[in-house]
Structures are given as structure tokens and as C-alpha cells.
Design a protein around this nucleic acid. Sequence first.
DNA 1: CGAATAGTTGAAGCCGGTCAAATGGTGTGG
DNA 2: CCACACCATTTGACCGGCTTCAACTATTCG
Lengths: 245, 245
Amino acid sequence: MEKAHDVLIRNLGEHTALADDDMAEIRALTFMLRDFAPNEDFIRQGDEPEHSALVVSGMVARYHLLGSGRRQYLAFHLTGDLPDAQGLFIEQMDHGLSALGPASVAFIPHRELFIAFRRRPTFALAVWRETLLDAAIFREAITNNSARPMQARMAHLFCELFYRARAAQLVRGNRCRMPISLAQLGETLGMAIATVNRTLADLRRSGAMDLRDGELVVLKWRELQRLGDFSAAYLYLKRQSPPLA
Amino acid sequence: MEKAHDVLIRNLGEHTALADDDMAEIRALTFMLRDFAPNEDFIRQGDEPEHSALVVSGMVARYHLLGSGRRQYLAFHLTGDLPDAQGLFIEQMDHGLSALGPASVAFIPHRELFIAFRRRPTFALAVWRETLLDAAIFREAITNNSARPMQARMAHLFCELFYRARAAQLVRGNRCRMPISLAQLGETLGMAIATVNRTLADLRRSGAMDLRDGELVVLKWRELQRLGDFSAAYLYLKRQSPPLA
DNA sequence: CGAATAGTTGAAGCCGGTCAAATGGTGTGG
DNA sequence: CCACACCATTTGACCGGCTTCAACTATTCG
């Protein structure tokens, strides 16, 4: 079992060259590990957090709650991600976080992080980069949900998740865990459940991918990419993984 | 005429306490000022920028171009904004920037910025904050375009722009410049031009606001806020402006 | 075994997209 | 000064895709 510190170091190392002193600083941080059940909230809209979260295993979601009561998922996070790094500078959370499937999350005190930033500016820059990658993913989500037809929209989401899962070494062969319900997909992509189901059925029928029992299987990567109008360029903030196919 | 340096200092000062040395460092930066005509591009998707932009006057837009040729606007920027601060860490731009109306933009070499960051960490944190505010705006756009009905969607956009314009001291009385066409509104909110027009007509009829001749007039702020399900909480990264009504 | 939840499928209706045409303002050139 | 072209806006009519609603199935868990 990889330790929480190592998960963070590996992820930041994807885009930033960390010196030994940087890693030592990270290892000296306090990580409070907690396990969460599926769909359990652990940060709520309106909270004023004093810790940053690190996904150690499982999948984590960020979401808005609207005045109408409706829920909108904003992003999903995998092992190694810092899903609320922006909380370091925000007085009040504008969105909540919850576990998707079972997940374990480490919490790091803001105070310690700021001290570490001062001592190791490279570490601060690395976390900054993480927040910028986040922003690039948000931008793509705006475009995806606003301008792409339903099938492409869904295909694009799975392309992104599969690509990121691969970078996080969570893909075995051509499959990875993806514990997300149809209702949640609908609240992510802005479509009704019935449409989610029918669109997913179309994708299955295309032979490019399957999603079943909380597992995503990509059978024809290039085809899925084509259907989703997906180009990984916006994720290249990270060092590029070896080409996928 | 406020100088470019002062515009930046004022904007960063909204959320970060800058020491005299920070301001001196900012004033020492090279600002290359350029004027742009309406709808002129100045950074293109795919570029590898070596300068950061600062909006000195006018309005600036960020947009994606899709494989289908369709355009999706991602965000609008006002005087004082750093619309591509994330370019500091991104090898390749995932989106383009253009002027909306006539605009003047200052360009600052990345090299100088990194040196200034090293000398004045507070300056770096202030720019980081700017990028996080950006991200909060992106998140809200995802929700807006995915989960809100047409009228609320449009009302929300104008609430945000008016609120930010006010913070940037661009509001005179109850109006501010807003040089955006119906077509561009459609490419922002993900609706067809015909729908944009009809929705805008509804908003006019409600008496809450008007948009005409490139100028936004807010007649009933509370009502507009209600129609748009708008809460400024996600912008509170900035010091809160005095309440609006 | 029964209740609850997730997924699947069908039918109906409407919202918003698409297409087309008319209006109005602006700037250019005759 | 008028004629014309061009562009943004406005409005109407049609149509299709998506939402809504409902029923049914499958699976899980008490």
C-alpha cells in the first residue's frame, strides 16, 4: 500500500521536478487519513476549511448545490489529486466534496502547508500548477456541457477520466474503476437520466467503450476520442504520458 | 489615465495586502501596451506564450474552438484582470483570447514575473489568488450552462459581470459598458441566437435590466439576482464590495 | 421474502434549435 | 445627399430532440 505522502509526491512529480529537500518537506507534513463511504460528504458548500484534502484512493467529486435544490457535479478526482487546493485562499467553500465510491482521503493542515511553501517555493509552485490543471479541466467542462451534442459530451467525459486514470496508474489493461451512477452522470453532463441511459447505450453499441458494474472499459480508444472530439492537449500541464494507441 | 502598473496593483490589492516593496517590484516590471480592435485575437489556441496579459481597458474574452468549428466563450475579463496568468505554467494555450470591444492590453514577460515572484513571494501568492478566482468563475459557468434554465442562465451572467464591473469601478450609476453581441452571448451561454434574443426580451420585459448599444443597465438588482439564482459568494476571494442594494 | 435502489424502456409533449425573412442602423461610394 | 451593402437584431414558423412521466426489471440488503 502506497503511503499518502508518496501518492502526493508522485503526482506532483508528474509536472514538477522535486528536489530531495522538497520531498523531505512533504514527508514531514501531517496527513490525517480518513475513510469515506460511497456518496458521503466530507466538505460542504459554505465551510471554511483549515485543511487541504488529498485523494489517497478511490474517487472524489466536487459539486454545486443550486437554489432550486438541483445538484451539479463539477469535477472528479483520482488518487494523487488535491481536490480542494484552492481552499487555501478561499474564505468560504463555493462547492462541496463527496466520495463517489468508497474513498480514503488525507487532510493536511493549511498552516503546515503555508510554512512548507515558504521553506520550499518549488513545492508551492507545484501545488499552484495543480490548481491550474484543475482550471483547465473546468474550462473543458464548460465547453463540453455547452457546445457538444449529447453523445460527444459523454464520450469526452470518459476520455478525460480514462486518460487521467491512466496517468495515475489506475488502468489495468483497458479498464479502470468508475463508481458513478447514471443519475450522477446526468448531474455532471446536464442531461436527464433517460437520456444518459440511451446515450450510454449508443456508446456501447458503437463498440468504443462500456461502463458496467462501476467499471469503465475502453475497447477502441481512437474511436472514443473521435466520438468525443477529445484532445488531451489541455492536460499537458502534466508531463505527457506515453501515447495511448 | 491610470497607468497599467497601477491597474494591476489596485486589482491585486483587492484581495492581498501588498507591501511597498511589492508595489515597487510591480512598478519595475516591463509593460508592453498594445491596443486592439473589436474582435481582434491576440493569443491563439496552441500558442506558447512568453508574456502574461493584463487588461488595462476594455473587455477581453477567452474562448475554445471545437473540432466542429463552433466557438465557446469561457470567460470575460475587465480592467485589472490577468486573463492568461495560467499561461505562466502551461506549455501550450488550450484556448484563445480576443478583444470584445476596443481594448488595450499590457504584456509582461514571464521571465520578469518569475524573478519578481522569487523576490516577493507575496506577489506570487496574489497572482495565484487571481488564478483561483478565475477557477471559481469557471465552476460557476459549468453550473450555469448545465443546470439553469435559459432565463436564469442569462440573468446570472449579467449579475456576475455587473458585480465584477462594479468591483473594478467601471459602473457609473447603474450602467456599464458591455460590448457583446447576441451571437457572442449565444456562444457563451450555449443557446441559439434566436433564443438569446427572446430570452433577453423577457429580461427587458421583467424590468430588471436592459442591454442596448453595448451598454448594460441594471434597474432592479435584487430582482435580477433572484432571476439568476445569483449569489456573489464565489467571488468573495476578493474583498467584498459594499452591498449593492 | 419484501423493500429499496439502480437501471431500462416506452410514450407524450414542449422547449429550444434551425431556417427564413424582415427590420434597422451604419458606413461607403457614387 | 442618396443608394446600396453589410451587419446586428428581431420575429415567425416548423420540427426534432430532450425532458418528463410512468411502468417494468434486476439486484441488493435487511
